[in-house]
Every structure is written in C-alpha cells, then in structure tokens.
Design a protein around this nucleic acid. Structure first.
Lengths: 322, 322
DNA sequence: GAGTTGCGGCCAGTTACTGACCTGAAGATG
DNA sequence: CATCTTCAGGTCAGTAACTGGCCGCAACTC
C-alpha cells in the first residue's frame, strides 16, 4: 500500500473498526512514528472528520460524529448484510426512503467483489423467503444493476419473459424502480416500441448496461408508481383485493402500513386496495387489520385462502391441549 | 481540504456517485491537471481499488468490482436509509447475518452527524411500524450505541425499567445482542449483581458508554440466544405458543422462517415454538404455516386472537360483494 | 482515416512528508 | 500534590513525492 493517502484511508478504517485506539497502537499498525500519526490525525481533521482524542492514562483516539459523513469502511460480511438489508428495506418501504435505499444499494453492488456476490446469492437462497409467502425473489445483483443504470441515466438491454411466456429482447431507458404489491417494477421508455412500459424485475434476465447515456423524460402523469399500477397485467392484478374497513384511517395506517393503498376514507370507514401477489399475504392483511372488513372485490383464490385460514385458525383455537 | 489525500478520497467518492466520468470532467472537479488526475487514478489502483477506463470517444473512468471493498461514500439520505434498513434487517434475520448487520449499523451510527440522527428518528416515528402489530420499537441510536459497546467490549451504564416497573441504574459488560420473538435483548454480565442478566433494549434508557474495556467471558451454555430465551420474564414468555404442525420440517422452515423455534421434528410433524410478543403475530404464524396445526400451549389472549381472526376472515370471505 | 481519450515516460521545480527532539497541557493515580 | 501517561504541536533537515507540461503511443468510435 502506497504512501500517505493509503495510510490516511487505513487510519480512517482502523478508527471505524474499534472505538478507541491508543496512539502508540495506531502508530505501530501503520508503521510510522507517533509524530507522523499525529500528523495523519490532523489531516483527517482537516478533511472534516472529527477525531476526538483523550489524554492521560488510557487515552486514545476516537472517531466522532461530525458535520459530514466519512467514507464507511465495511468488511465482507457487513457488505453482504448491507446488500440484503437494503434490498429488503427498499421493498417494504415506499417513496423517497426506498429511493435512498436503492441508491445506497447500487453503490455497494457497484463495487462488490465477485466472490461476495456469489456468497450473497447463496445466503439469499438459504435465507427463508420473508414469511409472507413468496417474497419478491429478485436477484440482488440484478436489482443493483438496474438501480445503477437508473441512477446514471444509462440505457439498458435485457431479456424479458412476458406474462404470456413470450421472450423478447428489450432496449430501454430506465426511469424509475417502484414496488407495487411487494413486487419490483421498472418503469422505462422502450426504445423500440417508442412508448412507456413497465417491466417486472423478476422477469428480467441478462441485464446489460450499455454505456449510452440518455436524457430523462417527464414520466406520464408525473407519478411513476401510479403509472405502473395502472398498467399492471391482468394476471398481476387478479390478486388485488378491494375492501371496506370499518375503522378510522389512522387505525388502518398503523395496522397495515404502506403495503396497501388507501382509495378513499371517511371517519370510521376506509376503502383499501391490497395488492397481493400471494393470497396468504392478502389473508394476513385482512386478519391483521383488526377491524371488521367487507370485501368488495377479490379473486376466488384469495377468498378460498381466507376460508382456509379461518378454518385452520378456528380448529387450532378450539383444541388447546394444555 | 488538504492536498493529495483529500483529493484521492474525493475522487473515490466521485467515482461512486456516477458510473462514468470522462477524465477532463474529473480533473476539472478536482481542480488539477489531467496528468495529475491520471496519477490519482493510478494511486487508487495501487491501493487496490480497480478503476476501469475506456478509451476513445465517450471514454472515461469507472469504479469496478475488485478484490477488496473501497470505503463507501454515502450521502445523508443514504445514511439514514442504511440505519433504518440495517436495524430492520437485524431484527428479522437471526444469527451471523444479524451480527453483521449490527456491526455495520454501529459503524454508521458512530459517525452519524447529530442532525441526521434527529432526521432518522423523525422518519422512524413517521414510518409505520412493521405490519406485525407492535414491532420492536427500539431507538436506532440506542441500538447502535449498545451494538458499538458490545463490539468494542466496553462497559455500559444505563437506566432500566424492569417488567414490574422498578427503575434501576445498571453497570454491565455487554456481551451479545440477540432477538427473541421480535424483541431485542442484551445479554450482559451485571457488574453489581455479579451475574449474567438479559435486558430488553426497549426498556433501556440513557445509555452511556464508559470507556472501560473488559475481557470477554464465556457465555453460559455457549449459546447467548438460548440463555436469553431461558431467562425470559414470565410476562414476556406468556405469549409463547407451542404447537404441533402436521407438515414436514422443510415446509415449516419455508413458511415461517427464523421467527419460530423448531423444538423437535419427525417426518410429517414438527413441534414449533413461536415467541410472540403480539398475539396478532402468533395468529399470522399459525395461518401462514399453511398446514394443520394443533396447539399444545398458548395464552388465553392468543387463543382469543386466533378466534377473532377466524371469525373476521370467515365473515369477510362469506360476503364478497362484487 | 480522423478525432477523441486514456497511458505513462521524462523533466524540473516545488511541496510536503518524515522522524527526531523538545516543550506544554490535560487527565489519571495514589 | 507530585508523578506518570498520553496527546499537541513547534522546529529542523533530509528525503521523498507530488505537480504540470511536454511528448509519443495505444485503443476505441464514427
């Protein structure tokens, strides 16, 4: 590792892996004199990263919270945790927080060494799908690649399997990634069809970022999520559940969070759309609402699942054998 | 910002915020000649971070995936996303992945500027609790502080409200953070009681890291999670649910994941303990198992909730009004 | 083939980094 | 209170590294 710059980075990294470091120890690790260490610390401070020092016996250096964020030095396990955590988080929250998560995810994925990708993938398949039935099993690397291209306004090529099984090759301008009903979609402008299209990420394959930059266009209706929702394929939409909940909006929000769309509400009644890609998820939603519910629209499969849950729960509750 | 080192860091950061940078642009931003930029790039490469370059028209530099992980430069929104994603992730997965998440979380929290902490806190309270009823609403900063002290083997002082309401001041050696039934616990050696104790993180307050380091002791039984589980207070334990599932282990694992403990299993039957801090969570578990279930042990509150869910679901399923 | 962009050698002037030595100050210890 | 430990930072001299300007070269695009 080369001279001063490398050492400065290394110092920053050391200060992040342990809270306290006595000066001598640091100097030893960096293989410089203590005087030089003090100068390195000074350099970090000049760079805006506050290194707090304590004098006297058991004194030492410590990286504090400052005005700006120092570069995070993460190790391999932590990088994998980041990939998995950010992917899951982006899927469960919506809006700007999801965007920030994706932005962070793309940074990690961009620099993730290949062997770590394999490890992450292995872990992902070993880890149980989030307990809502089928979670959006999108490959973290693919998600990262798409997020990266979206961030950098870079054209994208990929293979797509449509709902009817037809396989096509696409060339698009990726505009935004959104989640609807626990599934990932990419809203993009299709360069061959000259129109907006939304693509399910779990149906994309062989994603290839061409390096061609593009100029962003305004999204129709100025609301990517709404646009994607309006374009859901019949099959995707079929598990949608429309219901009247006899409770206040506040209660509904607290119980089900962002994973359902409030269509309209008045005091004591909320009309709610649950986009369920899994009937179990719909059943959970209805149960967890903790209020009386009238179903306005639902697929037979969902109704059937509701009945099965109901029977199972009542049987279980009827026979406590303790 | 000082000379070379700062510029190198800045270059690394620029390379992470956009995928492609033409050399001239980078040189301009860093206010150096293109020759010096080339040398900076070389420096980064010497440091082990692979900067790929493309020649010719529309050429430029690009940070690639290499052998080691470069320091991540995240912006404020991303830092907040990290805090929230890692906290949530650590709570939902168990084992080594959770540990890695906590390690990463502590790194972020350590350097998070104060104003960002406030923003994170605000977002946290605005964000709906995860839809399992009461999520473990542990302050992210507190979690980070405890994780930091645990990582660095640093003694901890805090105020604790016990289950019976008694408020005490504790001084402990924090050994491990574990989750049981969607709650956070700290397994620690109490320095005043001279024995192991487990503390619920949501009952801790005013956490203060003394700088006193301690030497780790072997955890009794060598399994922190098991130890904490065995010491759960009566109140915490009361919502435990013990059941026989008539399905294969594989099926159960796939349906409920790490959020339940398999007590024993034989082909076609699994005995399962669900640690539920919320009866709704238990109801969800039973329903989502998608198999016949016999309850062996359960609190009345849980049984009552199961019944309520059952009724609600069957009423809802019976009256589809489409 | 022409234009663009990155690569890296060379050179000379400048800068800054390093280790040694020293004085001071702040906290811990007894 | 005296003493020890540890960080802070000035100075100095030798060395190393950095910088910008110049160059010919190589790779890629159109």
């Amino acid at each position: 590792m080369s001279g001063t710059s490398g050492r400065t980075l290394q110092l920053l990294s050391l200060l992040q892996t342990h809270r306290f470091w006595p000066g001598g120890e640091l100097a030893g690790r960096l293989e410089v004199s203590e005087r030089t260490l003090r100068r390195d610390v000074e350099r970090l401070r000049d760079l805006g990263y506050p290194v707090d020092a304590t004098r006297g016996t058991h004194g030492g250096y410590q990286l504090g919270a400052g005005a700006s964020l120092p570069p995070l030095t993460v190790d391999e396990d932590e990088a994998i945790a980041l990939v998995m955590a950010l992917g899951a988080h982006a899927a469960t929250v919506g809006g700007p927080l999801a965007d920030a998560s994706l932005a962070a995810l793309s940074k990690v994925v961009q620099v993730l060494p290949h062997r770590l990708r394999r490890r992450a993938e292995a872990l992902r398949s070993a880890t149980v799908a989030a307990p809502f039935g089928a979670a959006p099993q999108v490959d973290a690397e693919l998600l990262g690649a798409v997020a990266l291209a979206t961030r950098d306004a870079e054209r994208l090529r990929f293979a797509y399997r449509a709902a009817d099984g037809a396989a096509t090759r696409r060339h698009v301008e990726p505009h935004q990634i959104v989640t609807v009903g626990r599934r990932w979609y990419l809203l993009a402008h299709d360069l061959e069809r000259h129109d907006w299209r939304s693509f399910r990420l779990d149906r994309m394959e062989a994603v290839e970022a061409t390096r061609a930059p593009f100029r962003r266009r305004p999204v129709p209706g100025d609301d990517a999520a709404a646009f994607v929702r309006s374009r859901l394929s019949r099959r995707d939409r079929s598990l949608q559940l429309l219901l009247d909940v006899h409770a206040d909006l506040e209660h509904v929000r607290r119980r089900i969070g962002p994973w359902a769309t409030v269509v309209e509400s008045e005091p004591g009644r909320v009309r709610l759309a649950i986009e369920a890609n899994d009937p179990h998820w719909a059943a959970f939603g209805v149960g967890n609402l903790d209020a009386d519910v009238t179903i306005l629209e639902a697929d037979d499969e969902v109704l059937e699942t509701l009945r099965r849950w109901s029977e199972r729960l009542s049987r279980a509750a009827a026979r406590p054998q303790d």
